[in-house]
Design a protein around this nucleic acid. Structure first.
Lengths: 172, 172
DNA sequence: CAGATTTGATTGACACGTCAATCATATGCT
DNA sequence: AGCATATGATTGACGTGTCAATCAAATCTG
């Protein structure tokens, strides 16, 4: 609920202003540029693409460094097909392994290889530094707070059903 | 320059906090989801991909609906190779045309076809509505203002040399 | 239990993006 | 003019993402 009494998901009749559209475009452009810069840097520093990094991060945080393929997909919010293609490429490069699942013969268990673990560990620090340098160093604490609020608002708008969870935690 | 006296580009010694990293990840995830949703919607509504739309927008805003290939690339900030590939695909579909440039025999002039013009016009309104519905409707005016500020700050950080230009136009 | 349906995962086709190499024309230099 | 170099643009190879189709194993249902 907001000052004017509208609920987040309520449709309003007015058209979107040019300024709002411009901010949308700026958001897309700026985040695309940041992703491009940080992705290229990550690749140079570690030989891993952002997608590789994302997969390895989820696996390394999982218990025993192994996950069912579908759990992994849910964890990083990827389509199964996309994950399957990407795991194929990562398997070819020796970053991960796929074994048959003992409890479900349809399933696959994805696990980190030693190479994958090592490459991921090597990538973490430089990547964090790059994010800091290109993104975090630019913003004030107030801007971080505002951005956090905006992103939560957008997420709540995209997924209204999960909106209540964080509501309690903030502003009491 | 900021309240604490640091200049935007100054390196700070402290490490990036976990919260800042989380906000970076939320920014990437949320914008990716928005792009995915709006891109799929655009494609369903109009048969145009976001990339198609971007190219057609730049062309339709250009004088006479035609631009040199390199000018177009600069306009939308794409690599030439990317543009060349994409123009090839768009040309096959009859959305644009490439003619030899009269003043420079190396150059190509890109122009809108009637089909391209028509498809672009048809795509504009539903696309704006979708951006409004999924993005603009979520945010308050204050959040827009904060986001605008954050995006400008990030742009200035990415391109320090151009930092002064927009400063005059706003807030007098 | 047999047959239909659902689920976990992969595949193929194709659009998209990046990098390095290429090619032809223009331009600069002596 | 002649040659090196710049520039405008394209190409090929390859990694990536999406959609629809496929396939096998599991589960549901009569």
């Amino acid at each position: 609920m907001r000052d004017d009494g509208r609920v987040t998901s309520a449709a309003t009749r007015r058209r979107m202003s040019a300024g709002e559209l411009a901010i949308w475009r700026a958001l897309v452009d700026t985040t695309a540029e940041l992703r491009r810069i940080l992705g290229a840097q990550l690749l140079r520093d570690s030989g891993l693409s952002p997608a590789d990094y994302h997969v390895l991060l989820a696996l390394s945080e999982a218990n025993g460094g192994r996950l069912r393929s579908s759990e992994l997909a849910a964890e990083i919010d990827w389509e199964r097909s996309r994950l399957s293609h990407h795991l194929g490429r990562m398997e070819r490069r020796g970053l991960i392994r796929r074994d048959d699942c003992s409890t479900d013969n349809r399933g696959a268990e994805v696990s980190l290889t030693e190479d994958g673990t090592r490459m991921f560990r090597g990538a973490t620090a430089p990547h964090a530094r790059a994010v800091k340098r290109h993104f975090a160093d630019a913003l004030t604490p107030e801007q971080f707070e505002a951005l956090d609020d905006i992103l939560r608002t957008l997420q709540n708008h995209l997924h209204p059903e999960q909106a209540a969870i964080t509501r309690e935690d903030l502003h009491v």
